[in-house]
Design a protein around this nucleic acid. Structure first.
Length: 274
DNA sequence: CTTCACGCCTGTCAGC
DNA sequence: TGCTGACAGGCGTGAA
């Protein structure tokens, strides 16, 4: 479900609440979500540890703990993290509870149960290949026009598929890719290598703009997404193409089209995007 | 190496 | 009112 702006919003809404808290107890109701180590070991190594820092890389959340330990959470499609004062709340699809010494809790819920959690020493983070191999993020110093030109130039696959690949750019997902391509006026099925220098520059600018606006809006609440306090984002009000199949393009009035590109539902304006 | 199809899960919604 | 199929903010795997 969440992409970089949503995960960043969750990080910001949780940070002040969880940093400094000590995990008193971990209840794992669905152990297959724990990918490393085993669920009992996972519980054992983080129990009694204090959270010192909360960071994000791409779509991963990293809870840094005492003793150089890290709790890593990836929400995938429908994962949610809620901070609950005085634990006993009733929420659907609740799978993991992190209960603090003051009885507040951090709750992990996930309808499709595709999310993944890990706990390990900081020095062991290489075990999470998706995290270790993450490309530069939008808005970062490493994500330059030059970099985007370099990764697109030699590849013949569709530009949309490349933008979704976390090895190349960390943090983009289906909504923000469709929105970036719409803003840049580039058709999602264009071969990456066919983009002109001008188009690459426009795309680079569009990605940064869309992601920055997404963060400023507190994310896009299209169906499931809420932040760490259970609140919706507002970026859905700004979407140009995503979720607007058959509705008129705001620029030209043509009907927004939908088709599958690279195995993902894709929205675009057939008139404005070439 | 790059690219693509598929599997993983469950809930919701459109169309019959 | 059921029922069925399509689809959903993601990513890892394996085959070509």
């Amino acid at each position: 479900m969440p992409e970089m702006p949503e995960v960043e919003t969750i990080r910001r809404t949780l940070q002040d609440k969880v940093v400094g808290k000590t995990i008193k107890k971990v209840e794992v109701l669905l152990s297959r979500l724990i990918k490393w180590p085993s669920a009992p070991e996972f519980q054992a190594i983080i129990t009694g540890k204090k959270i010192t820092q909360l960071e994000r890389r791409g779509k991963y959340l990293l809870f840094y703990l005492e003793d150089s330990l890290v709790l890593v959470v990836h929400l995938r499609m429908t994962g949610r993290l809620y901070y609950a004062a005085q634990a006993s709340v009733n929420i659907k699809s609740l799978h993991i509870k992190f209960i603090f010494t003051d009885e507040d809790a951090l709750l992990y819920a996930d309808t499709r149960t595709l999310g993944t959690l890990y706990a390990m020493k900081e020095s062991e983070l290489w075990r999470i290949s998706g995290l270790a191999g993450l490309g530069p993020e939008p808005l970062s110093a490493e994500f330059t026009v030059e970099y985007l030109r370099k990764i697109t130039a030699t590849r013949q696959g569709k530009i949309k598929a490349l933008l979704l690949n976390q090895k190349f750019i960390g943090g983009l997902g289906n909504i923000y890719v469709d929105e970036s391509l719409a803003l840049a006026g580039i058709h999602p099925e264009r071969s990456a290598g066919s983009l002109s220098e001008q188009e690459v520059a426009k795309l680079h600018q569009a990605i940064n703009e869309v992601i920055a606006q997404g963060i400023q809006d507190g994310g896009t609440s299209f169906r499931d997404y809420v932040d760490g306090e259970g609140k919706s984002g507002t970026h859905q009000q700004r979407l140009r193409v995503y979720g607007r199949k058959n509705q008129p393009c705001f620029s030209c009035g043509a009907k927004i089209e939908w088709k599958e590109v690279g195995g993902r539902g894709t929205h675009y304006c057939p008139h404005c995007q070439h």
